[in-house]
Design a protein around this nucleic acid. Structure first.
Length: 488
RNA sequence: GGCCCCAUGGUCAAGAGGUUAAGACACGGCCCUUUCAAGGCCGUAACGGGGGUUCGAGUCCCCCUGGGGUCACCA
């Protein structure tokens, strides 16, 4: 019988979420959900020096926002709790002691000072430092005496010195490492807490994790974990190591270098759905050519087989494209809801129907934050350069622009019920009557009522949004200014 | 530096010995068109190098080069 798939996202609470971490969470979630399994959240906070206030909330918030609902976790509990390592602290040491008993681990009383000195010495000789097993050969009596007199100690894993250790990775295949490269790593720190290296093995086993999914930076330390599983006689999980996400220049993404975190991207106007969609495809590809995915679709389409091995770079242009795609496919109502805060910030003119503005904006918005810069002309008509009336392709000049505006004015004035249809019909019949190109009428009007060379929406849409009075007023301003310029 | 991993256009990537080497982003052009978008069509652009294996190699092997990761009482 196949065991139910269980994956775990095990972040350490650092206070922010960078995109690599988020993608790891996403893949863990997808691996579980694509196989009807469970997705578990576990907080790895064994490093007390790194404690950050509120950091766990960032994790909850992000997962929730992205729709990555965990089935078990600190906040919702579950049959394998507690799900915070610091709350499990008393549970690890007995396992380490068991290892000491059966010869796979040993007490080490070496001081930090001694270790630092050794390290410095090795460095001076340009050698890689590795613990010298100074405490491995302590007699039983010595050990007991030191323990009794309270000398601080750690427990180290005893590595084999010869041979190699191999493991199977679901994406990288067989990885083999020489055992003499493995240091006798610390399992239990002198503060009594386990290291990540130890705790993750114990917890993954105790929590019945079937697929260990994490970044490829853990690839070389995985043999150490396997040796631990073997020492305990435990079943080894399926390993799924993920390629890194790097910056365009190939270097690693890091908060310290100011690279955008998930939170930053949201502030920059990117949608959660677009971010999730984009990072899902950074390192994984579906069977089809489909690019736009909802989370639900990803849950169906995801498979480990198509996870790639090489690192991929985070391309903002493509993220922007995904964002634009998601914006275009959402309902006008939904877009309006998202655009509203930005519109309220940018549009002070209370006569403007903001939902109409949203409508002309939806296909012209790639990132929400660019909205304010597109709608300023709705507030007031600013002074503009008359040369924008002259447009080669529209075949407009100052003279014929003036004519068009003068012709349009009474026609527009005559409209009783002011809406896109009536404006459109009136203007079109005028154009027909005058026998001119659409552009020769519509370009000058748009120019006159916006004062901008480029605007979202055309003359008719904008006239409707502005309302009859304001439209006529602005056209009159245009006529006045053009008359002055032409007669001069 | 030792060890591990990776290598298809600028970027994301398909490709599991025989293909005109997909598709997407970006870029360029054209069409549509009342500006700008959106949309449609077309185009520029890739198997890092060298050896093998094979009738045949982007696909398999080796070397080189390049990139990344890792070598903590961090995770």
């Amino acid at each position: 019988m196949q065991r139910q798939v269980r994956t775990r996202y095990a972040p350490s609470p650092t206070g922010y979420m960078h995109v690599g971490n988020l993608r790891t969470a996403l893949y863990e979630y997808l691996i579980a959900k694509s196989q009807g399994g469970k997705f578990i959240l576990r907080i790895e906070d064994t490093d007390q020096e790194r404690y950050v206030e509120g950091a766990v909330d960032v994790i909850y918030k992000t997962l929730k926002l992205c729709g990555l609902r965990h089935d078990e976790g600190p906040d919702i509990g579950g049959p394998y709790g507690p799900y915070v390592q610091s709350e499990r602290k008393n549970l690890y040491k007995p396992y380490a002691e068991e290892l000491v008993k059966n010869g796979h681990a040993y007490y080490c009383f070496c001081s930090k000072e001694r270790l630092d000195a050794l390290r410095a010495e090795a460095e001076a000789k340009n050698q890689t430092f590795m613990y010298d097993r100074h405490c491995l050969n302590l007699s039983q009596a010595e050990i007991e005496e030191k323990l009794k007199s309270g000398v601080p100690y750690v427990i180290r894993q005893k590595m084999p010195r010869e041979g190699t250790t191999s493991f199977e990775d679901a994406v990288y295949g067989t990885i083999t490492i020489e055992n003499n490269m493995l240091e006798d790593q610390i399992l239990i720190k002198s503060d009594g807490l386990p290291t990540y290296n130890f705790a993750n093995v114990i917890d993954d086993h105790l929590m019945n994790i079937t697929h260990v999914v994490r970044g490829s930076e853990y690839l070389t330390s995985t043999p150490k974990y396997n040796l631990l599983y073997k020492a305990f006689g435990w079943e080894i999980p399926v390993y799924v190591h993920l390629p890194l996400i790097v910056k365009p220049d190939g270097s690693k993404i890091s908060k310290r270098k100011g690279d955008a975190t998930f939170e930053d991207l949201l502030k920059m106007g990117y949608l959660v759905e677009a971010i999730v969609n984009f990072i899902a495809l950074l390192g994984w590809s579906p069977d089809s050519n489909q690019e736009i995915f909802t989370l639900a679709e990803l849950e169906k389409a995801f498979n480990i087989k198509h996870i790639s091995k090489s690192p991929s770079s985070f391309d903002m242009d493509k993220l922007t494209w995904f964002n634009a795609q998601h914006i275009r496919t959402m309902s006008p109502e939904k877009f309006h809801e998202l655009a509203l805060p930005y519109l309220k910030e940018a549009i002070t003119n209370e006569d403007i129907d903001l939902s109409k503005v949203s409508r002309i904006l939806q296909n012209r918005t790639e990132v929400l934050t660019e909205i304010p810069s597109k709608v300023g002309f709705l507030n007031e008509l600013c002074d503009y350069d008359l040369n924008i009336y002259v447009h080669k392709k529209m075949k407009t000049t100052l003279e014929n622009s003036l004519t068009s505006l003068k012709e349009a004015l009474p026609v527009l004035e005559a409209i009783d019920e002011w809406n896109e249809t009536t404006i459109h019909d009136s203007l079109m019949s005028l154009i027909e009557r005058l026998g001119i190109k659409n552009g020769q009428m519509l370009w000058p009007i748009r120019t006159a009522i916006t004062g901008w060379e480029v605007t979202p929406g055309g003359a008719i849409e904008i006239a409707d949004i502005l309302g009859k009075a304001e439209t006529l007023r602005r056209i009159k301003v245009g006529i006045e200014r053009l008359e002055k310029a032409v007669s001069a």
